[in-house]
């Protein structure tokens, strides 16, 4: 299926740099800030945002990994068996401003699951959301605080994010059915 490239490597880098600046500005620094990436794409993006924020502010920022499989609401409707990945949050989220990082924001159900999972780890002072792509079609009252790029899509389209951490060339591709 032919796909249309909607972000290239340079554009992804610029978007993440801008988001890093926005996160610092909105939170007036990094003092109580931490980043948590959702498996899998969000984990790499959280790592990149963290190093970007560190190079701007010169301060260490805690970064965690969250797998939301056990909190999903579609166990009974998915075709494939769920695959459980690592969750690793080696710090307390209580009292922190947690920025959840994901690659694509679509129905909002993953973010709902991520918030439920996160709250089982502690009581964050606030939860914010950063995504590389917002493709619309929300099914829950959820919106992102930081967006790399908004793209209009059909519900049946697929948005694929390729990242160099997975051995691919950085790019975002929109795949339409027809």
């Amino acid at each position: 299926m032919p796909g249309k490239e909607i972000l290239n490597s340079k554009e992804i880098e610029r978007a993440l740099t801008r988001i890093a600046h926005e996160i610092i500005e909105r939170n007036k620094g990094t003092e109580t800030l931490c980043l948590i990436g959702i498996q899998r794409g969000g984990v790499y993006l959280a790592g990149r945002l963290a190093s970007c924020i560190q190079s701007i502010e010169g301060a260490h920022i805690d970064t965690g990994i969250l797998d939301i499989t056990f909190y999903r609401d579609d166990l009974y409707s998915k075709k494939d068996q769920p695959v459980v990945r690592t969750t690793d949050i080696p710090f307390s989220v209580t009292g922190k401003t947690v920025v959840i990082v994901d690659d694509v924001l679509f129905t909002g159900r993953s973010i709902r699951a991520a918030m439920d999972a996160l709250i089982d780890f502690g009581r964050p002072a606030a939860i914010q959301l950063a995504v590389l792509i917002d493709r619309g079609h929300r099914e829950l009252p959820i919106r992102a605080d930081y967006v790399g790029k908004n793209i209009p899509t059909h519900f049946s389209d697929m948005v694929e994010v390729f990242l160099k951490e997975e051995g691919k060339e950085d790019k975002v591709v929109l795949i339409s059915e027809q």
Binding site: F70, R72, V83, V84, T86, T87, D120, F121, G122
Partner: peptide
């Protein structure tokens, strides 16, 4: 592999998931 994920859950303060 799936059990490894649950073993991590059992090490948390809240040892319960809504799955």
């Amino acid at each position: 592999d799936t059990a490894s994920g649950f073993k991590d859950v059992l090490a948390r303060d809240i040892k319960k998931v809504p799955a």
